[in-house]
Design a protein around this nucleic acid. Structure first.
Lengths: 268, 268
DNA sequence: AAACCGCCTTCACGTAAGTTACGTCAATTA
DNA sequence: TAATTGACGTAACTTACGTGAAGGCGGTTT
């Protein structure tokens, strides 16, 4: 279903569009989402930022849509940080049933210390073309050993990820289809907002309805029905791969959405 | 629904049954599940064990069935470790719908570094009478700062917890009721086994069907139906608050259970 | 231009799961 | 002994959701 090719080395001197840029300008902006996110979780010193930036710039890679970055059962020996694109964590059952258990957006990391466990219990796939960076275990451990705030920021990352995972559990277990999809859209918008990927209450929606179905535990058909319902209710417009939430407060009410689990406004 | 009284201070010189015991004998055995579990995740030095044991013995507390140890929205300033009894993490929606998102068994910890976040995103309740210990933030940070293996053990704890959470997501999203309940029973048995709470393939099942329903995202009635089905299939016997799995391999097959996510056999 | 493909949409139908209501049983308490 | 209670069990009915097949539609290939 999902190819598992080794993602190609990307070379840091190219933008997503393929244009040549001066290194000093380009690199900073490329890894900026990660720095920004960590800095919200824990204020970082200039030195911490710089050392992390260097490490990130040396490991930049790309992957195409549908490609696995890492698969269930693979050993882990590095930390991956998302620079652009949408990814998901997913698990499958032997008979092919698939559940997306989380999305990964720019600035976020695959579990920072996952290498402490022997192998991956789930897979991570690119849902769109993505740019990410890979920091080897030893390098990463050096970074966090050298700076307490940086270590805590990655800790927080994992904890927030954990909280999101719990919210997904109640979403799948106790919300009905309409609430479930509404909740997912609320979460997407609120997670993309701090990365600057939301204008007004609009964002791109680059994934297929099949992916949305796998994320909400529904069949494609029923997901589609539910999207129709959401459109008919006037809460959203979903067209041309763009999601616009026309009445965010109403959508949040309908979804029983309460954003505290996202810890977006966390300060030290 | 769930009371939220401050759990009473327990006094370390009493056993669960209330008998007086010599301190030196009693204490070790009481906190043993935690040491054993951490030691499986990362081999601990004698010093690390001892310092942790001291810290644990000073903070021992009890809670009654149904009581919240900590509730959604509460600030966190300590780490809690389970010594005996069954607990659960749960979240509720405004209208009362409740989802248990995980169980907590003896030896396990509430997220070790949860105090890095501002407030709890979920509640933790005792499903049976429990004994646990509470270590204040500063004390805990001292412990993990002093011993790298200990810090890594707690890291692993969180990561394993995370993996379990993901497995629950696919359980709720993609397994049908029969598989779902079967999977929960498999998980319970395999998580209780290393703590010595399983004899053969039997363990106590001290929680109500309502709790099991909230854990599997089903209604009580449908959970009950499903339990009947499991009994009728000859895979389990559930009677007198005791669960016996008569054919564990068959139950695992039916549940599409693969234990790797539990990381039970993790070695450094 | 034709053929194709991935994705979305809609139909008709079947099944799984929720709801309500009531019955049973064992353990308390009066 | 009877009343009470809480957990478990059963049934009839309703609803939400899944399945499989078919058509539409824009974009890409040949």
């Amino acid at each position: 279903m999902h190819d598992h090719h080794a993602p190609q080395q990307a070379g840091v001197s190219y933008t997503g569009g393929g244009q040549l840029m001066p290194l000093s300008t380009l690199d900073r902006s490329q890894v900026d989402p990660v720095i920004r996110r960590l800095n919200v979780l824990r204020p970082l010193s200039m030195e911490a930022r710089t050392s992390l930036e260097y490490a990130m710039l040396e490991g930049i890679q790309r992957a195409g849509a549908g490609e696995d970055l890492i698969s269930e059962g693979d050993p882990v020996d590095s930390v991956r940080l998302v620079l652009s694109g949408w990814l998901c964590r997913y698990k499958t059952l032997e008979d092919g049933r698939r559940q997306i258990v989380n999305f990964l957006f720019p600035g976020e990391s695959c579990d920072a210390h996952a290498f402490l466990l022997s192998v991956m219990d789930h897979s991570i796939a690119a849902m769109t073309p993505v740019v990410y960076t890979e920091i080897k275990r030893a390098r990463f451990e050096g970074l966090v050993a050298a700076d307490r705030a940086l270590a805590e920021a990655f800790w927080c990352e994992t904890l927030v990820n954990n909280a999101i995972q719990r919210e997904w559990a109640i979403n799948l277990g106790r919300r009905v289809a309409f609430e479930r999809v509404a909740h997912l859209f609320c979460e997407i918008i609120e997670r993309l907002r701090p990365v600057g990927m939301v204008e007004g209450n609009s964002c791109v929606m680059p994934v297929t309805q099949m992916d949305l179905a796998d994320a909400t535990g529904l069949s494609v058909v029923h997901l589609n029905r539910t999207v129709q319902e959401l459109r008919a209710s006037g809460l959203i417009v979903l067209r041309d791969r763009t999601l616009t939430i026309t009445d965010l407060d109403a959508l949040k009410d309908a979804a029983l959405f309460s954003p505290s689990y996202l810890q977006l406004y966390r300060r030290a």
